[in-house]
Structures are given as structure tokens and as C-alpha cells.
Design a binder for these strands. Structure first.
Lengths: 138, 138
DNA sequence: ATCATTGCAAACACTTTGCATACGC
DNA sequence: GCGTATGCAAAGTGTTTGCAATGAT
């Protein structure tokens, strides 16, 4: 439900002390609705149509702010552009080297989240699997 | 032994059809001897002292070439600069959020390399663990 | 002589910063 | 009205490209 999502986004933003402005809500909404792990550029060009005065600066400002607040996360990729996602539950990522698709991966039973590793304190855990997705395997 | 390493590097390069020039050997040697996963900039500034005419273009050219040939690999990080390594055996990486150190991680028994995942063909497997390294835990 | 390699400089792409305008309480 | 948010333009940074000089066989 559209209203549900909006309410959820506003609540999330307010919880971390970020004022739910039009632009911020739209960026969050875009991330929640388009789970392709978009780049700043993708978000900008898509929302530019809906919000004519929309600027790239706002995209970068907002993404940075939301990441600092722990509401979204930036993905480590070997691409030149940073990719973002609003899915904050633990999961991995699969990158298809053929079509370029980047999607979430369920890692239950594959990489159990450890608290400690060789004496190092573990805070975060990113898994990037590269290969050929089921669609591209013909 | 120094001579051993050089011989090994030349052999590796020749195996993939890359002529072992002075610059390429030095870059490979640097990667083999400095396992801090250096950036192109780090490699450049270090080798510039030994080879005065050394250029950044050559660093980028060489790193790109060697990566394509599968002799070195580029690391997916959320930093702005790409990091490289010559350790091609399967392993993970640990990034200390305090001191910034980036080192290899043994993943035996943690992330078993699967051939297939949800119908997707797995080719590569990168694990990035973030946290606080044993040195920084006071 | 020919082809690959190197390296300078310029171009490029993504992101950040400076600052003026507009907005919300 | 005052502090925050926005957005334009310019600057910054990492990387790539064009092309001439050099080097190897």
C-alpha cells in the first residue's frame, strides 16, 4: 500500500532525526521500490522527471546523510559508481558478469555471522558473489 | 630469495602472454612484497623513486592488463580508490574501520565456495568483513 | 622495420564543496 | 526571522584516452 510505505519512510527518517522532506522521501521511496541497488545517477535521472528542480547535489547530500544515519547502505563493488540499498537486513549480493544485474542473495547457512574472527571484532559482513545469473545461463 | 621471486614473476607473466618488462615486473614485485592491497597511487609513488621516468599511465595500463589476464585482482571496497592484490588463492578480506588496515582473512569453514546458488552459476566469491582489528581493540 | 610499451598531457566521470536562494517551523 | 534544505556552478579526485617517443625483436 502506497500510504503504508510513506508512513514507514517518514517514521524511519524521524527516528534518526532527519526531517522527512519531499526529496528525501522520494529518494527513500525509490530505493525501497527499486531494489536494483541503483547508483546516484540512476536515482537522479529517474526522480528528475517527477521533481523538475531536483539536483544531483541533493541526491549526494541525502545518500550520504542517510548512510551516516544507518538508514541505507552503500555497496562495495569494483565499479566506478557507488550503489545504494535500503534493505538493511543481513544478506549477500550476486553480480551477473553477463547482464550486469545486481541482486540480493540469501546467505543463511552459507556465511554464518561471527562476532569474532582471528581476534578481530566483526561489525559488518559483505558478501559479493560474481557469476552468471539464472536468466543468462540460457 | 629475491631471485626466486623474480623468476616466479617472469614465469607468471609469460604464461599469460605478457612480456615481462621492467615496469611490469616491478609492479608485480611490489604487489607480492607489500600485501597491504595497495592502490594505483601507492604503487606509483613508491616505484617512482626507483624508476624516475615511471608514469601513472603505466601503472593503470599494467594493473588493467594483469587483471584481465587473471594474474592479479581488483578488490571491491567502498573506498574511492581501487585496491589490488596478487594473492589469487581464495580468501576473504578484513577492513579495520579504525586504522584502515586491509588484510587477508582465512575463510575455511566460514564461507564454503559453492558452485551454484539459487540457480546462479558462481564464478567468484568476495567476502569483505568490516570491524576493529586485534591491534585497535586496545 | 615493425610492433608493443611507455609516458606526458588532456579529457573524462563521479563526487564534493562554496555559496546563494528558498523553505519550514 | 532563523536555521535547515536545496540546487547551481565550480572544483576536486581517481581513472582513461590520444598520441608521440621510445624500446625490443
Amino acid at each position: 500500500m502506497r500510504t503504508e510505505l510513506l508512513k514507514d519512510i517518514c517514521q524511519t527518517l524521524e527516528q534518526v532525526g532527519v526531517r522527512p522532506t519531499h526529496q528525501r522521501i522520494e529518494i527513500m521511496k525509490y530505493l525501497k521500490e527499486h531494489r536494483v541497488h541503483p547508483t546516484a545517477e540512476m536515482i537522479y535521472s529517474q526522480l528528475k522527471e517527477a521533481i523538475p528542480t531536483f539536483s544531483k547535489t541533493t541526491v549526494y547530500n541525502t545518500l550520504k546523510l542517510l548512510e551516516e544515519k544507518g538508514v541505507i547502505s552503500a555497496l562495495a563493488t569494483d565499479e566506478d559508481q557507488v550503489r545504494y540499498e535500503a534493505n538493511m537486513t543481513p544478506h549477500g549480493h550476486f553480480k551477473c558478469v553477463k547482464c550486469g544485474a545486481l541482486f540480493d542473495l540469501n546467505l543463511d547457512g552459507v556465511a554464518p555471522p561471527e562476532k569474532e574472527l582471528d581476534g578481530n571484532l566483526v561489525l559488518e559482513w559483505q558478501v559479493m558473489v560474481k557469476g552468471i545469473c539464472s536468466c543468462c545461463r540460457t
